[in-house]
Nucleic acid binder design. Sequence first.
RNA 1: GGAGACGUAUCGAAGUGGCCAUAACGAGCUUGACUCGAAAUCAAGUUGUCGGGUAACCGGCACAUGGGUUCGAAUCCCAUCGUCUCCGCCA
Length: 427
Amino acid sequence: MLDIKLIRENPDKVKAGMKAKEVDCDAIVDRILELDKQRRELLGQTEALKAEQNKVSKQIPALKKAGQDTSAIFKEMGEIKEKIAGLDGQLREVVAEYQDCMYSLPNMPDDDLVPGGKENNEPLRYFGEPKTFDFEPKNHVDLCTGLGLIDYERGVKLGGNGFWIYKGLGAQLEWALLNYFIETHLADGYEMIMPPYMLEYQCGLTAGQFPKFADEVYKIANPTDDRIHYMLPTAEAALASVYRDEILTEADLPKKFFSYTPCFRREAGSYRADERGMVRGHQFNKVEMFQYTLPEKSDEAFEELVTKAENLVRGLGFHFRTVKLAAGDCSASMARTYDIEISIPSMNGYKEVSSVSNARDYQARRGNMRVRRADRSIQFMHTLNGSGLATSRVLPALVEQNQLPDGSIVVPEVLRKYLGGLEIIKK
RNA sequence: GGAGACGUAUCGAAGUGGCCAUAACGAGCUUGACUCGAAAUCAAGUUGUCGGGUAACCGGCACAUGGGUUCGAAUCCCAUCGUCUCCGCCA
């Protein structure tokens, strides 16, 4: 959520920011200004009436005690009450629409971002060397199936299209990756969080996924009551609500969290041919990093998270790059995002394995998460998140980049200790 | 699933229709006094939010949440959420 003061005082700047993100919000911004004006007018009127009501009703006990006739006052109070009820009703409607508009307005992009979409993304740096093969490399689906690491067909039998089974060494390799990520974050002083996997609506609203992406997540309804939960699409949805409606003290920050969770996404629509296998499933494993910081510290935290994600990928020995996203490719809630993209040979290009973002105070406003500063003033915190990492792109890259001519796979050095020292996965 | 109790500031807690909401009382925290220093003691300060105002300040709202009754609700009624206790059931 944006600061209403910014919208009020600088609507053109907000409109321009949204245009840089390639969303046209002119109508919403204008509507917000209108509703804000109505809201304040109605507030002024009701509050004046309420002040009158309070004043008069305070006099009633004294009048009664003195034995005076209060029926005229009662009549007058009745009229005030009706007026207040009418205005309150109007106010409620205005506020409801105002809030809907405020929640649906995306975050402002940072000033230094290039406007426009994906095509304007800017690779910042490359790591390692592109992998070349002196044989015809196989794709990860054939490699994993050939080695019995993943069972796509039986996965579909269990969960339908978009699910698979990690089997044997495949499951162990997946778990080894997660262990490697977790150990690294622990060593870096991040606190491990295991959140619920089913969340209430407010979590999605705070993180900024709702209302826009409410259709992209799984909705769990109960047979006997009407409470609804949502399967988390990313641990961010949980981590961003940990301090919802709380005021922390300056000394509490930063909070550095990470979580391993499965992530559940409907991914409605058909797969593209180049997204076979485990690149876009309904359930995937991800370790998510999250930070709550003081406003002036979030840039620093952002760099830390990017570096952490890069180090994880580097530790696996991959060729990859870090890309600064153009304004329009950043998600709605985020002021800036860097993607870490790994090369997956069969897909002729780079695929995102981590996305690190700074939401600044956008999520904090939605979730009312604040910090009391040393001078006792109160501010919204900043929130940041980043994958560290999602395995669904790492494992395909791993098997493809590390394949040998006979279809075996070299296990990256850092993972061997989790696999009993295994160096090569062979048939 | 059944029965009961409870939800007030940082914490404990008082308040059962107007005299109780910057909230009694107790504790904590901050500052000051005393002290060589600490403890103890004493004094002062310690909720958030919205609207108006350059400001000092003025006004509204908030006693879990949402409704209702009433001129007036922390207090009475209803619903929801949460916590606790006992019983039942159960991976």
